[in-house]
Design a protein around this nucleic acid. Structure first.
Length: 571
DNA sequence: GCCGTTTTCGGCCCGACTGTTTTCAGTCG
């Protein structure tokens, strides 16, 4: 069983415990579920490698939960979970996804009205039974009805790249508002997480009423869930929900820290504060009544004895220990890329000409790009054959003469056949500056076969880069089955570069694999996979992902100037 | 159920908003 499925069982156990008023057990299950869900390796592999003891090494997993995991892995289910489901045969995923409906409401609905699904809930509302329950009323019924409506419109996590431009636009309008002293988009967007569930805006102002009215009446706002003096929650026309929190400017840093998260990182900091006899909340760090930090994020980390931790690292994955020991890596900076190694043009499925792509690349500060159009076995993209590649090379030679201080590199995105061979002859590949290899067919090979296929391609001395190494499309297609650790290892051994594809729905490698690559010293690059001049802006998401994977500039080959970059490639 | 820089027992992050409650419970982040 895979991590998300195991995590789900514990999330559900947490809900059941909460229904039974066992809050601390619930918290323990919830924490274990979150750890499992975000764990870098398959829990199954951890267990098979080191048994119960290895499981208990994971924070939040002790004796009882490790034994439950063992039972799940050995038998495929958990007796306790089956019993709870019998006791409360309820569609938890459905009902908990309704805003304003939590475990207590679910329990009451089930026990008093026999509601176990959203459909049941709609029915008792229609029959007028809901508002007659004690603790429920007209308003509550309205709220739930509205939640059901929104649920049906579809919710979920949104691609960072789909949301960030619009959210930043709102952020900058908040910033410019006359009574706003400071404004910031926090939450998972600030951590540059590949997908975000909602948007968290933070504002410093001493006239919160005016800001709150401004925010809740933005043209993008389609519904106001709640509006208070310091906090409100709305739905935006983008489909995503947004929170606004308003604090005084003396609290802004503490609030930034708090609303950037993640939750586990915050809990760890709060615990550090408690150990020192202090209290940390969104208003500041307090010794008794006295605020000892809060104006800036930096001072909070400093007083807690930590180096400043960049938002992208705040996942409680060991960053706090590193910060305490002054050993945080110096993450790659957002403006540090000199080149882009995957660019398509109108020779195949790109929209723009080579010249247009060069102009756009220059505008965002790049010094070189590799033109890597698709190759012949990708029929849908009208991929180039050996002759087409040679012709394009001649064109590139001509165009290169037109641009001062910019270099167009010759490249290709070649396809890896099922047997690990490539669709372009080695003789042609040898002439190119940058050869990227990728999988565009037979996504569903068994793991061992898929892994061998990719390892074979990496061993080809002409292959410089492995493009989008796991093939996933976020929210659309699962990664293909592959032993990514072996692939990373082989890339290091052969000096093949692993791509971090910055396209918003790829972000492939993902953060935890980047960390693996960084740990063992494999080389990385960050590419836009641009199919149009507009796509170079995606590089920012790739850098964000690299930072989430703790990569430094030294780990990323396209931070090098062009000549040094070319000599860094394998020969 | 987890965990240990006061601890192997006795704590467990903390505050805002809403609704139905006249002092608080539930939910959310």
């Amino acid at each position: 069983m895979k991590n998300p499925e195991i995590a789900k069982i514990f999330y559900h156990l947490a809900l059941f415990e909460e229904m039974k008023d066992e809050f601390f057990k619930a918290r323990a299950y919830d924490k274990a579920a979150r750890m499992i869900e975000s764990y870098g390796r398959e829990i199954k592999d951890v267990y098979e490698g080191g048994g119960l003891e290895a499981l208990q090494e994971i924070e939040g997993i002790g004796k009882a939960i490790s034994e439950k995991i063992e039972e799940i892995l050995q038998t495929g289910h958990l007796r306790l979970y089956e019993e709870r489901k019998k006791e409360f045969p309820i569609d938890l995923d459905g009902l908990t996804s309704l805003e304003g409906v939590g475990p207590k409401t679910i329990k009451t609905l089930y026990q008093k009205l026999n509601v176990s699904t959203i459909e049941d809930l709609e029915k008792v509302i229609a029959e007028g039974k809901l508002k007659k329950l004690s603790g429920f009323g007209e308003k509550k019924e309205q709220q739930i009805r509205k939640s059901i409506e929104f649920f049906k419109q579809g919710r979920g996590r949104f691609l960072l790249g789909d949301m960030l431009p619009s959210l930043r636009n709102i952020e900058s309008r908040l910033k410019r508002h006359l009574v706003v002293q400071n404004a910031m988009l926090c939450g998972s967007a600030r951590r540059m997480k590949e997908t975000i569930g909602d948007a968290d805006f933070l504002v410093a102002s001493d006239r919160p009423d005016e800001v709150m009215s401004f925010f809740t009446t933005l043209p993008e706002v389609t519904h106001v869930y709640s509006k208070g003096t310091t906090k409100s929650n709305v739905r935006l026309s983008l489909g995503i929900d947004a929170d606004l929190r308003i604090v005084g400017k003396e609290n802004f840093g503490a609030a930034m820290q708090y609303f950037t998260g993640n939750k586990d990182h915050n809990v760890a900091l709060r615990t550090m504060a408690i150990v020192r006899g202090w209290k940390l909340n969104e208003y500041g760090l307090y010794e008794g009544e006295r605020q000892i930090a809060g104006k800036s994020e930096e001072e909070i980390y400093k007083i807690l004895g930590l180096d400043y931790i960049p938002p992208e690292m705040r996942e409680n994955n060991g960053e706090i220990d590193l910060a305490a020991n002054k050993r945080l890596p110096k993450l790659i900076e957002y403006n540090s890329l000199k080149g882009d190694l995957q660019v398509q043009t109108n020779y195949t499925d790109g929209l723009n000409s080579i010249e247009e792509m060069v102009d756009a690349a220059k505008k965002i500060g790049l010094e070189y790009i590799a033109i890597t159009d698709h190759t012949k076995s990708l029929g849908v993209a009208r991929g180039l054959d050996e002759e087409g590649i040679a012709d394009q090379g001649k064109d590139i030679d001509k165009i290169n003469k037109k641009f001062e201080g910019f270099r167009i590199l010759k490249g290709a995105e070649v396809n890896i056949f099922k047997d690990g061979t490539l669709d372009i002859a080695d003789k042609t590949l040898k002439e190119l500056d940058v050869v990227g290899a990728s999988i565009h067919s037979a996504f569903d090979l068994p793991k061992e076969e898929q892994t061998r296929r990719v390892l074979e391609a990496i061993e080809n001395p002409n292959v410089d880069v492995l493009f989008h190494p796991t093939g996933r499309l976020i929210n659309q297609r699962a990664p293909y089955e592959i032993d990514i650790e072996r692939v990373i290892q082989k890339c290091r051994d052969t000096e093949t570069v692993l791509e971090i594809n910055a396209y918003p729905n790829r972000l492939d490698l993902k953060d935890e694999y980047i960390r693996k690559a960084v740990q063992i010293g494999a080389k990385l690059c960050i590419d836009s996979d641009a199919h149009s001049t507009l796509h170079f802006q995606y590089l920012e998401y790739g850098i964000g992902q690299a930072r989430r994977g703790w990569a430094t500039a030294e780990n990323v080959v396209n931070t090098l100037h062009v000549d040094r970059f070319l000599t860094s490639l394998k020969h």
